[in-house]
Design a protein around this nucleic acid. Structure first.
Lengths: 188, 188
DNA sequence: GGATACATGTAAGATGTTACATGATTGT
DNA sequence: ACAATCATGTAACATCTTACATGTATCC
């Protein structure tokens, strides 16, 4: 029963929206998009075939993207935006920000840390923070290398979004250092 | 290779790990946990019954949590950690941080912004950033109020994790301001 | 006894994961 | 012809979402 979803202009998933945006930049095959997701540390989506190909078929079914022909066999099929797809992309981009979009679940490391003191004690927290900080540093270096190599190809807003992600990780690296001091200096 | 998922010590989901940690703090019913998720802006998981109750049943099936009796009817069933559950919690907390745990998908607003200039142009970016900044500010205020009210009940590592989340949103608010200046001052 | 809040759960559907299957193209 | 790589897709499974169904306790 119930209907509701399954009929009308069901909302697009983030992955589907990202695919629309990427296809607007240049027509691409599912394989191209998977490689992009696998190689780009920035636009981070799954490169698994079971995610990308079904998403493309959903967009095609809604006539938001299309390849030229029906594409039999297993030949490469570059998809491109249709006018309806371009309109859907614009609508999505104009969506105002809601509070719910801001709230994100804690990531794994931070969730572990939040419960760590009570279960493992402060020495374990210090060990964890040293490890976490080192990984964050590695990743910041990796991101900076990517940014240096690819900034030229990005739009201004793309570069700014990238710099926001980079700043997030740098800030968290500083936080890890701060947290170590706070734990070291805490009495009791 | 292989590993076959579906047989052995399948990995616990983040939600399941969070449930273990919360049940260690105090035995709770599914309803308690749902309310906690609904009311806490910090440990952000879904409060939907279709997520929480099945997760508890999975943990119970693995003998990581248990209520006293079989709990017939629809009476309240407070679940608590078993020794196995406590061991699983400790194992999870000791998991070292991997690179994959650091990479997170862009959230909705930032993903939209990354593609915005090319499709909608710079004036739309400025409008978006003003809106985004205002929402971020509202949320920072909300988080600070929560922190002021609940810091006393948190452990040191819990407070530090909370402060990390708060710092993330403050940093993004500053970023939005920076991005507006960068776009305003950009030539062309 | 009846309303309301408490409390647990299921059903249908969407999406994502990993592992596998298979067709097409290219280089030797 | 054969192998390697490119390219698309499916199958089985797990989890989460929304909407619904149902039982229990409490208050008047």
């Amino acid at each position: 029963m119930s209907m509701v979803r399954g009929t009308a202009p069901r909302e697009l998933s983030l992955l589907e929206c990202a695919l629309l945006a990427l296809l607007r930049q240049s027509p691409s095959s599912g394989y191209d998009l998977r490689r992009l997701f696998a190689e780009t540390p920035f636009v981070h989506f799954s490169d698994s075939p079971g995610a990308v190909y079904p998403a493309l078929r959903r967009l095609e079914r809604r006539k938001l993207v299309s390849s030229g022909g029906p594409g039999g066999g297993r030949r490469r099929r570059a998809m491109r935006l249709t006018p309806r797809g371009a309109a859907a992309l614009e609508r999505w981009l104009r969506t105002p920000v809601t509070r719910d979009e801001l709230t994100r679940p804690l990531d794994g490391p931070m969730l572990r840390f939040a419960f760590m003191e009570e279960v493992l004690g402060r020495p374990a927290c210090l060990t964890f923070l040293r490890d976490y900080g080192a990984r964050l540093h590695d990743y910041v270096v990796e991101l900076q290398a990517y940014g240096a190599a690819h900034a030229k190809e990005m739009s201004l807003s793309g570069r700014l979004a990238f710099s926001s992600g980079l700043a997030d990780f740098k800030a968290r690296e500083r936080w890890a250092e701060h947290a170590r001091r706070a734990i070291t200096e805490a009495r009791r």
